[in-house]
């Protein structure tokens, strides 16, 4: 067997997505949480490219391209937000973000 079943790619994508979700839920460092989101987006991109292969369309690649642009924009804004948070509190632990708890 020299060819890879397409479902392997999709399983890989699902596994990466789930790991991203896990990272988001279990990690406490804001930066790592954000990186988990990037991991999720990467997993989605793999799905898009795999489906593009299945349908032999270039469309899936374009969606991936748009997702990349969005991810880059999110990274710029997100890291700027993280910087302002760090400036005001000197911590990056998500558990310390509790100034509004009653």
């Amino acid at each position: 067997m020299t060819q890879v079943p397409i479902s392997w790619f999709l399983t890989l994508s699902a596994v990466l997505f789930a790991l991203g979700v896990a990272g988001f839920l279990f990690r406490r460092s804001i930066i790592t949480v954000f990186m988990s989101i990037e991991l999720m987006l990467n997993a989605v991109n793999l799905s898009f490219v795999t489906f593009a292969y299945e349908y032999k369309q270039v469309n899936g690649h374009l969606f991936t391209f748009f997702v990349m642009v969005v991810a880059a924009a999110e990274a710029a804004v997100g890291l700027a937000i993280i910087l302002t948070v760090f400036k005001n509190r000197a911590t990056l632990n998500i558990d310390d973000m509790d100034s509004m708890k009653d």
């Binding site: 020299t2 060819q3 890879v4 079943p5 397409i6 479902s7 790619f9 999709l10 399983t11 699902a14 596994v15 997505f17 789930a18 795999t50 292969y53 299945e54």
Partner: peptide, 19 residues
């Protein structure tokens, strides 16, 4: 993870392959 893998495997039979 198991659920996702199951869904994917069930939805996609192995007839489409990548080379």
């Amino acid at each position: 993870l198991g659920l996702l893998a199951y869904f994917v495997q069930r939805i996609f039979p192995r007839n489409v392959t990548v080379h």
